[in-house]
Design a protein around this nucleic acid. Structure first.
Length: 209
DNA sequence: AGCACGATTAACT
DNA sequence: GTTAATCGTGCTC
């Protein structure tokens, strides 16, 4: 069976629905003729100009331009002087919302992912938003790419359905200086790996974060 | 033009 | 638990 990328209609939902339903989907990075893929296990929703944790709080700028564009494109930004972060633009064109991809379970392309980090467990290569970008060779050159195209460098396919009882909700992380109520909104979504549909991992489950 | 800080990570004590 | 690394962005002067 040939899996098609998730369509624009998927990303056109509310940013919260997109963040929730991306859990269990499969992120695909086409690189050097190989597929580097992983199940998405953690996301966060960033809800536009009124959300003071969202970059779009600054309005339409060169940096946030992609978020104002059509849904289903990648918003990739540089932070802390060294890290790249991957987001999926959601909702209608003109609505600057996006979903941060925070963690993956690696599936395909482990050999290529392993370059320079051979001694660690694969799960630890993609258990943070900056780590997964580095592992899948995702950087600013991919900012704005259409995630609904199967012939591009990056897309997302359907994967494992994650029922509600396997989802952990909580506040977004790394936004301690953002005022309430935004700081505490439960807009982080994570698969509870203790009750997950994924194959048992021989090395055990990663630490909760 | 200058400055404070950030949707993080790894390497410390 | 604490902190350095490192630079683009947006805000103030």
């Amino acid at each position: 069976m040939l899996l098609s990328p998730l369509p624009v209609s998927f990303y056109s939902q509310t940013v919260f629905a997109v963040a929730r339903q991306l859990l269990g989907a499969r992120l695909v990075r086409a690189l050097n003729g190989d597929r580097l893929t992983g199940y998405i296990i953690e996301t966060e929703a960033y809800a536009g100009e009124s959300d003071l944790a969202c970059h779009a709080r600054a309005g339409r700028t060169p940096r946030t331009e992609v978020m104002y564009g059509p849904p289903g494109h990648a918003y990739i930004y540089f932070i802390y002087g060294m890290h790249w972060m991957l987001n999926c633009v959601a909702e209608a064109e003109g609505a600057p919302t996006a979903v941060l991809i925070r963690a993956l379970l690696p599936i395909e392309g482990l050999d290529q992912m392993a370059r320079g980090r051979i001694t660690k467990r694969p799960q630890l290569w993609t258990d943070g938003p900056a780590k997964l970008c580095k592992t899948l060779a995702i950087d600013g050159r991919l900012n704005g790419v259409d995630l609904t195209r199967p012939d591009g460098p990056l897309w997302i396919e359907p994967g494992q359905a994650i029922p509600d009882y396997q989802v952990i909700y909580g506040p977004r992380v790394g936004i301690e200086n953002v005022p309430e109520p935004w700081r505490s909104q439960p807009w982080r979504y994570r698969v509870d790996l203790k009750n997950s549909p994924f194959p048992t991992h021989p090395q055990g489950t990663p630490a909760e974060r």
